[in-house]
């Protein structure tokens, strides 16, 4: 059983949902990343999703675009992100997932990327612009290296296509809460709730379902879990805290820990 699968099993046994925290590696500098992850794990994060910055992130809103810009400006390379992942996996029990656009994987080579991921203690990979139809070589290499492949589903994904995504995914399936890009939103729309219910019922427990994009409040996390998801993914909200406190590391880290803690509260079933 993979570390990610074990985490979801443990959460289920405790009757709670998971909090997956997204961190743009190297934002604002690679030196910050470990401390940011420490703060989020201390706040209650169950899985850490580490972003490798890419120059042209088409699935991301302005908050994560700016974060990628800062990280690249600070000299963050894929190799440095793997070094950070290794340090995180040594320091913490929580699984580490890397998220990046496919060109980063393609340029390093699928085999070299999966080798580097395995050697860094990375447990899973998310490549949001790699469709399942193009992914056979990637899946094969990841499987050989013991890396989970997490595919994205959307509200517009047909039932037939969802079957393919569930088959290709290991670790969990990542449902995008609404058609759109990443970024903290104030309300979780009714159609997002409906799409979580629909997707959860189509998956029928064959894989954990994690929901992301737009979630920023404990009430969002609660709604996501109450409607059938196993975990909530929060990213832009944390990046905002980083961005608002670029000159004050202490306030940044305290804010992140407190934010993670209140969000984690939303996963505890009442």
């Amino acid at each position: 059983m993979s570390a990610i699968a074990a985490t979801f099993r443990d959460l289920r046994q405790k009757s709670e949902g998971g909090l997956i925290v997204y961190v743009m590696a190297g934002d604002p500098t690679p030196k910050h990343t470990l401390k940011i992850v420490d703060a989020l794990v201390a706040g209650g994060a169950d899985i850490v999703e580490l972003g490798i910055p890419f120059s042209d992130p088409i699935a991301d809103g302005p908050t994560l675009q700016r974060a990628a810009g800062r990280a690249l400006e600070a000299g963050t390379t894929p190799r440095k992100v793997f070094d950070l992942a290794r340090a995180i996996s040594r320091a913490h029990e929580v699984p580490v997932v890397v998220m990046t656009y496919y060109n980063i994987v393609h340029q390093m080579g699928v085999e070299a990327f999966c080798t580097a991921a395995q050697q860094s203690g990375v447990n899973g990979v998310i490549a949001p612009d790699l469709p399942v139809e193009e992914a056979s070589q990637y899946r094969e290499a990841a499987m050989r290296h013991g890396i989970d492949t997490i595919f994205l589903a959307a509200p517009s994904t047909s039932a037939a296509r969802l079957e393919k995504l569930v088959t290709a995914s290991s670790g969990f399936v990542y449902l995008v809460s609404a058609n759109g890009i990443t970024g903290a939103r104030k309300i979780l729309q009714d159609k997002s709730i409906a799409s979580i219910q629909r997707t959860a019922s189509l998956i029928r427990g064959r894989a954990p379902l994690a929901v992301g994009f737009g979630l920023s409040l404990p009430s969002h996390v609660r709604q996501v879990i109450d409607n059938g998801a196993s975990a909530a993914i929060v990213g832009s909200r944390f990046v905002q805290i980083v961005e608002q406190n670029l000159d004050d590391g202490h306030t940044m880290l305290r804010g992140l820990r407190e934010c993670a803690h209140t969000l984690k509260g939303g996963t505890l079933l009442s």
């Binding site: 469709p131 193009e134 995008v176």
Partner: peptide, 12 residues
């Protein structure tokens, strides 16, 4: 070529 896009664009 191909179609390397986020899942949100696949249906469109």
């Amino acid at each position: 070529g191909g179609s390397f896009v986020p899942e949100t664009l696949v249906a469109a």
